[in-house]
Simulated scan of single mutants.
Amino acid sequence: MKPQFFGLLGTVSLLAACADTGANYTPILDGAPTAAYQADLAECRALARDQRQFDQETAGAAVLGAGAGALLGAADDDGTALGGAVAGALAGGVAGIANSAERRQAIVIECLRGRGHHVVG
């Protein structure tokens, strides 16, 4: 049981480490950056980082994945529900992190565009 506990602990640690993914995005500009670009970029990154509902969605995806994995693991011949829960939590959490990272990146891009910077991607 200890290896599975450490696997779950590792999953939680991985999800926590990726919490700000996407907010640190450095966009591509069409042309030279203006004098205000660095300050605007820092403010837009902070805005994206403050969107905590994405973290809640990631946690929700991990919980749903853990539940589905536990059910599948329990239905297996071995009956290893905890192993299935760990795998499901990891899969759900990774999907949630990817989704929140894309949304945070989009916030940075749109915020900079709204401040007059010519962001192409």
Rank of each mutant, 00 (worst) to 15 (best):
L64R: 11
G69D: 02
G67R: 07
V63P: 00
V94T: 11
A85W: 06
G79L: 08
D77E: 15
A75R: 14
G73Q: 05
A75D: 01
L90S: 03
D78A: 15
L71E: 01
D76A: 15
G84C: 06
A81D: 11
G69C: 04
L71K: 08
A68I: 15
L82V: 12
A87N: 01
G84A: 07
G65E: 04
D77Y: 08
G67C: 13
A75H: 02
V94I: 15
V63E: 00
D76E: 12
L82I: 11
A91I: 14
G67F: 12
G67M: 13
A85E: 01
A81I: 05
V94Q: 00
A91T: 13
G79P: 11
A68Q: 10
G92Q: 03
G93I: 04
V63Q: 00
A95I: 11
G96Q: 09
G88V: 06
G88N: 06
A85P: 11
G88D: 03
V94S: 01
V94W: 00
G65A: 08
A81S: 14
A85Y: 06
G83D: 07
G92M: 05
A75I: 03
G96A: 07
G79M: 09
D78L: 12
A85N: 03
A81M: 10
A85Q: 03
L82S: 08
G73K: 08
G73R: 09
G84R: 02
G96N: 08
G67H: 09
D76W: 15
A68H: 00
V86T: 05
G65S: 07
L90M: 12
G88T: 08
V86S: 04
V86P: 09
V94E: 00
A74S: 13
A85G: 14
L71V: 14
D77S: 15
V86M: 07
G88L: 04
V63C: 00
T80Q: 12
A66F: 04
G83W: 07
